[in-house]
Design a protein around this nucleic acid. Structure first.
Length: 441
RNA sequence: GCCGCUAUCGUCUAGGGGACUAGGACGCCGCCCUCUCACGGCGGAAACCGGGGUUCGAAUCCCCGUAGCGGUACCA
């Protein structure tokens, strides 16, 4: 099996494109086949080298490698011109100066039962001659056979007047030359497939097998875009998601196993993936489920590994102890600093929390707590826990009436990792200093 | 408008004629655990788009309708 991922460098790699890349990668790795990366840059107005770089970067971060490429589509223009000349020569294509208005007028005149057919002229854009009779059938592994009657298809422009080729032509030639056996791409390409089939047929060349993936939508059912929050792979990376979690989530958007397993490692995904099991209906992207899944993946990492990722993500070092006591409470890498940053940068400033927990009574609690903690050595989780529980007992208070003021004194906010663990990580000196500062307020 | 694709809980899905009082996951609700927030455990509410067929029997097959989406570019 030879498959390809062929993004157009007109912007960042979006999750829809990433999902397409992932499925191609699964198909190739599952069968021991080959994945070709091709950059569809035939639109000079929208394609930039920066975007190519960004796409390559995103694929790399996602952990998707390829066996051939990246090859630029424009780099193959010599070959494209050769085929174009051949089609012009043997009458499968012709030049035409017909404008959009003329095409519309033609169709208005002939009704819906007749696609546009132009006259051969000496100059102009190149159009492919579509037969009046018959139909092109797309053989699709996901959708079965879909038939498109030729009478409904306009003679498509396959090259601009300046000679540069267009997508529906280039894609057919490039897939053919690359020996692509299975074209796995988004469903938005299904309706244009007969035009590509017609190019191949004019050449007497064989067609690949297709697999048109259902599209991805935002939570509102509309096409996924910026309005839905993160939409590009880069944005998910910056939002603190793990590539392995994103792979798992994306894999399940349009594909599932017969036993409906949810957490599947990349190895399992490769082993179990088959195109035939891809769903036919469009899927909505659910950030909440991704978040949940990302949390699962983070908790499965060792403290060492998670620390390494968090240090890379935050650009800080010495995070290990803080990571260890925060691990169960965060779902993304970005959640860490808001939760545990106070350990390094000092208490956060939360007036509402101070007002609620560091009132007159709260400060007497802190004095008791300070007195109980002061003599402790070594300053371990067990030791501080014993000391604070003794304070609770001595005051006849509810546990939270003691723990919350201490928490706010240390963290500045009412939410933090476990209070005993936090004390132990901060150490005796720093803990007492923070209590003193809060008492003095 | 025309052409095409699709249609199971709010969302992702399992299901491919009888195993369906329709299963799982996220989310939601309740309870438990508990120093906050989480994590974890237990329980609950929640769906076969509508109408015709085919069949002894339809979520599963066919047709029509409806809805959503895609295409209809000298974009990809």
């Amino acid at each position: 099996m030879r498959v390809r991922f062929a993004p157009s460098p007109t912007g960042a790699l979006h999750v829809g494109g990433a999902r397409t890349a992932l499925y191609n990668w699964f198909a190739a790795r599952h069968t021991g086949g080959t994945l070709v990366l091709r950059i569809e840059d035939t639109d000079p107005a929208r394609s930039t080298p920066e975007n190519v770089e960004q796409i390559l970067d995103a694929l790399n971060w996602l952990g998707l490698d390829y066996d051939e490429g990246p090859i630029s589509q424009v780099s193959r223009s010599e070959r494209h011109q050769e085929v174009l000349a051949q089609l012009l020569d043997d009458g499968h294509a012709y030049r035409s100066n017909a404008t959009k208005q003329q095409v519309d007028a033609y169709k208005a005149q002939h009704g819906s039962e007749r696609g546009f057919r132009g006259e051969s002229e000496a100059s102009g854009a190149v159009r492919l001659r579509v037969p009046d009779e018959g139909a092109s059938v797309v053989h699709d592994l996901i959708r079965g056979d879909t038939s498109f009657a030729h009478v409904h298809i306009d003679d498509p422009v396959i090259a601009r007047a300046d000679g540069s080729v267009l997508y529906n032509f280039a894609v057919a030639i490039d897939d053919l030359d690359a020996g692509i056996t299975h074209v796995i791409r988004g469903e938005d390409h299904l309706s244009n497939t007969p035009k590509q089939l017609l190019v191949l047929e004019a050449l007497g060349a064989p067609a690949p097998v297709y697999a048109h993936l259902p599209l991805l939508h935002g939570q509102d059912g509309k096409k996924l875009s910026k309005r839905h929050g993160a939409a590009s792979v880069q944005e998910f990376r910056e939002a603190g998601y793990l590539p392995e979690a994103l792979r798992n989530y994306l894999a399940l958007l349009g594909w599932g196993t017969d036993d409906d397993e949810t957490i599947l490692s990349t190895e399992e995904l490769v082993q179990r993936f088959t195109i035939e099991r891809v769903s036919k209906n469009p899927a909505r992207f659910d950030h909440q489920k991704l978040r949940w899944m990302n949390g699962r993946y983070m908790r499965e990492l060792s403290v060492e590994e998670l620390t390494a990722r968090l240090e890379a993500f935050t650009g800080r070092s010495g995070l290990r102890d803080a990571v260890e006591i925060s691990k169960e409470k965060i779902q993304t890498l970005a959640d860490f600093w808001p939760l545990a940053g106070f350990i390094f940068d000092g208490p956060a400033d939360d007036p509402a929390a101070r007002e609620k927990w560091l009132d007159e009574e709260g400060r007497t609690v802190l004095q008791d707590a300070r007195a109980a903690l002061e003599p402790i050595d070594p300053f371990t989780v067990e030791a501080v826990q014993g000391a604070l529980e003794a304070v609770v007992a001595a005051r006849g208070a509810k546990p939270r009436q003691v723990f919350q003021p201490v928490r706010v004194a240390l963290a500045g906010r009412p939410v933090s990792p476990g209070i005993f663990e936090t004390l132990a990580v901060l150490g005796r000196e720093e803990s007492l200093a923070r209590l003193d500062r809060a008492i003095g307020l």
